[in-house]
Design a protein around this nucleic acid. Structure first.
Lengths: 199, 199
DNA sequence: GGCTTAACCTAATGTCATTAGGTTCAGATG
DNA sequence: CATCTGAACCTAATGACATTAGGTTAAGCC
């Protein structure tokens, strides 16, 4: 009495891991749990994925791709504050919808370079960010600094929110909107270097 | 031939865990490893700490306390941009010096409430942040929004930096300085709500 | 119909987390 | 000083997991 083959592949395993991550948290994504979900023995997974760390890396890349696609869709044809808000909301929405996947993208990168090279997500995300800021007409190195500031703020907010850091009375939603306003204003009048500062 | 007693206590175990976290990363902090470092059997730790999760929670609280103290020291007697920069630099320095401990503070909070109540760190940190922003004379709810923005930016930057997100040519150091400039400018001219916006 | 190649499986090893049920040391009590 | 007590440790055992080695078996190709 044999079961039919599950027809696994690296992508299928990764997807199962990603789903599990969203359901029970990334650090409860175990080989055993993924195998269980796929109706397969633990050892079978190793034919498709090098090991747990590799699986996590794949989940991270999958998440990066998905997130990028969503941002690209939502920012298409927009510019200026419109684009900034669309970008940020898409970013945050993805994190909300896929907390486990999003967490995976935070891991200090220890991903198979060969694999990473094939995944368009991370590179694409950087391009999108630079493109989104084009309307603010910043020159290097200010542009890079601005990109880093925006990324930091979005990631920081979403991350703290997920960790329960905003347990306060005021809805995170409202603070989010104000932060985006603030970012926009900031980008419009990016502070010139103080004359006194030697840097 | 018996060894001398190690004279353990919950705090000592926590400290060993924290040191280990900084050395090998928080998720390599295991009961076994901590026990090994203390020259004790795994089971002995359970007399001082409920379980792994509890240990991590204690490390997080320890880190929060330490970080808060450092920020308090460095911002004492300062105000305005001076205070902001001191605050931010102390924050970032702590994360650099104690990456494992810092990571522990990011965990979605699952800490024994009774324990958390005794730890002044988290509460103190919030107070310090509000105090630091006093110079900018914001009223609620803007003040809360500003606090959240600052926390998000600092945490996001440090977190991305630690994850290797700034692999670019431009030194993170320089971007950091510019981001603080930007935050300061932003706080000085916190954008008024747009007249058109119904919120 | 045999062959190759994946896709799976069984078995085994080693690391951890955690619990149960003792020892033993250090200091208070008599 | 003898002892009692509680905290500090230990041994032993169980049960997840991760990972490897060494088979089976299904599916498509000739």
């Amino acid at each position: 009495m044999r079961m039919a083959r599950a027809g696994l592949t690296a992508d299928r395993v990764t997807l199962a891991g990603a789903e599990l991550a969203d359901e029970v948290g990334l650090d409860h994504v175990t080989m055993s749990a993924v195998a269980r979900r796929l109706g397969v023995k633990d050892a079978s997974l190793y034919a498709h994925v090098r090991n747990l760390e590799d699986l996590r890396g794949r989940i991270a890349l999958l998440a990066a791709d998905e997130k990028t696609i969503r941002i690209a869709e939502d920012t298409a044809g927009r510019a200026g504050k419109d684009a900034l808000v669309a970008f940020a909301n898409a970013y945050r929405a993805y994190a909300h919808d896929h907390p486990g996947r999003y967490t995976a993208t935070q891991i200090p990168i220890q991903i198979d370079p060969e694999l990473a090279a094939r995944a368009p997500g991370p590179r694409r995300a950087v391009e999108l960010t630079y493109g989104m800021l084009r309307a603010y007409a910043l020159d290097e190195p200010d542009l890079t600094d601005a990109v880093r500031l925006v990324r930091s703020t979005l990631h920081g907010f979403v991350s703290l929110e997920a960790a329960g850091g905003f347990a306060h009375a005021r809805p995170a939603e409202d603070s989010w909107a104000r932060c985006l306003d603030a970012l926009h204003t900031l980008l419009e009048r990016w502070p010139a270097r103080h004359e006194g500062d030697p840097t």
